[in-house]
Computed example of a mutant assay.
Amino acid sequence: MSPQEIPAFTDAAVADAARRGRAMYDLGSTPIFASRSDPRFGYCLYVPPDIAEAETAPELIVAMHGTGRSFVEYRNAFAEFGRWNRCVILAPLFPIGVQGDGNRDGFKYMAEGDIRYDRVLLDMVAEVGAKYGWRFDRFALFGYSGGGHFAHRFLMLHPDRLWAVSIGAPGSVTLLDPTRDWWVGTRDVEARFGVAVDPAAMAKVAVQMVVGSADIETWEITHREGGRHWMPGANDAGRTRPERLASLCHSFEAAGISVRFDLVAGMAHDGLRAVETVKGFFADTLAAMRQAERQ
C-alpha cells in the first residue's frame, strides 16, 4: 500500500475507535486491571453497558474472593444482577504470597506486613469511581470463606463506607469482644488500625450472614498451636463454620446490630451456590434504600 492509499485518521475515526475500545474493554465484563495505587493487586468489573444513559448513578457491589482467588467467577455470578439492578460489580484480586512467603491468608486478617488490605480496596473503589465519573461513598460488600473473613473485619473498620455486607462462611471470626486482642477479639483494634470499633455505626449497615447447613468439615479451619494465625481462643467460637458464624451473629446482636442469618439447607462449602441467597438480600436492601431516597 502506497502512502497515498493509507487512510487518514480523521477526528471521527479516532472518536469511533475510542467508543469501540470503551465498549469492548470498559463496559460489560471487563479485562483484569492492575490497581494504580499498588499494581501488585488487580481487579475486574462488570459495568452495565447502558449505564451512561441512566438518570442516576449506579450502586457498587464488591465481590471479594476466598482462598481460591476465584474472583472472575464471582464477578460473573453477579453480572446479571448488576445489569438488571443498575449496579457495578467490582471483583478484587489479592494474590497469594505478595510478600514472597506463599502466605494464602494475609488479606483475611486485614493487615500483612506493610499492606493494609482495607486501604487497598478503598483505593480500588476510588479509582473505579474516578474512571467512570461516579462517587461510591458507600457500597455493598460480599465475601465468602476467606472473603467472609475479610468482609466482617472490613465492616468493623469501615462501617461508614458500607450500605450492606454479606458475610459468607468464614473459617474464623472476630467477635465484638473487648476483652481479647485481635483477631479473636477487638480490644486492641484502635492501636492496630487507628480506628475504634463503633457498634452503633455498624448497626446502620444491612448485615447478612450466610452458610450451608452441611458445611461441617474442619480440616482447614482448626487453628493449631504454632500455626501462622494461632493465638489463645482461636477455636473458641465453635468447631464448624455454621457454629462460628452463629457465634459472630450472637456477638453482633448483643451489640445491637441486626443480622439476617441464612442457613442454606443441604449446602456444603460452596460460595457460588450461596450467591443466589446473597442476591436476594442485596435486592431487598437496594429496594428499601432506593425507596427511602425517593421519599
Rank of each mutant, 00 (worst) to 15 (best):
S172M: 13
G113E: 05
I221N: 05
S258D: 14
D236L: 05
F142H: 13
H229K: 01
M64S: 08
V195K: 08
D50L: 08
V278F: 00
A196I: 11
A191C: 08
Q291L: 15
E243L: 10
G280M: 05
T186I: 15
S29R: 08
D198Y: 00
H269M: 14
S213W: 00
A206W: 03
V88A: 00
T240W: 05
A17W: 12
I32D: 09
D160S: 14
D177S: 06
V205D: 01
L45D: 06
G66V: 00
R75W: 01
D137V: 13
R40D: 05
M231L: 10
C44H: 00
S29P: 05
A268Q: 06
A196Y: 06
A79Y: 01
G147M: 05
A274E: 10
G146F: 02
R244G: 03
E53Y: 09
T285H: 06
F107Q: 02
R75F: 08
E243G: 07
A292I: 14
G227H: 10
R104T: 05
R86G: 12
A283M: 13
C44N: 13
D262V: 11
R40L: 11
V264S: 00
D26G: 14
Y74Q: 06
F78P: 00
A254V: 07
G97W: 00
M24C: 08
G148D: 04
V72G: 00
V278K: 02
L93C: 12
S166L: 05
I32M: 11
G97V: 07
L263A: 09
L93Y: 07
R273Q: 14
H269E: 06
F282E: 03
G256Q: 07
Y74C: 00
F41G: 01
G280N: 11
D236C: 05
G238F: 04
G129N: 10
R239V: 11
A130M: 07
I216C: 15
L286T: 06
V205F: 03
V184G: 01
R22S: 12
R241Q: 09
P242E: 04
S29V: 15
R138K: 13
L248N: 04
M231Q: 15
V259C: 00
V189S: 05
N103K: 01
D118T: 04
A287F: 12
F150M: 08
A18E: 15
G68M: 11
D262N: 14
A23I: 12
F71T: 03
V165N: 03
F282N: 01
A206R: 05
R260C: 12
A63W: 01
R294Q: 13
G100I: 08
G256C: 10
K204A: 15
L248R: 02
V165H: 04
P92C: 09
G271D: 00
D270C: 07
W230N: 06
L245P: 03
F261Y: 15
H229M: 10
V184D: 03
G271W: 00
R241D: 09
R241N: 14
L93G: 04
Y117D: 03
A292L: 15
L122Y: 02
A130K: 12
T218V: 15
G82R: 01
F81L: 06
D284Y: 06
F41K: 03
F9S: 14
H269P: 07
A12P: 09
R19H: 04
F139V: 04
F41N: 00
H269A: 09
A268N: 13
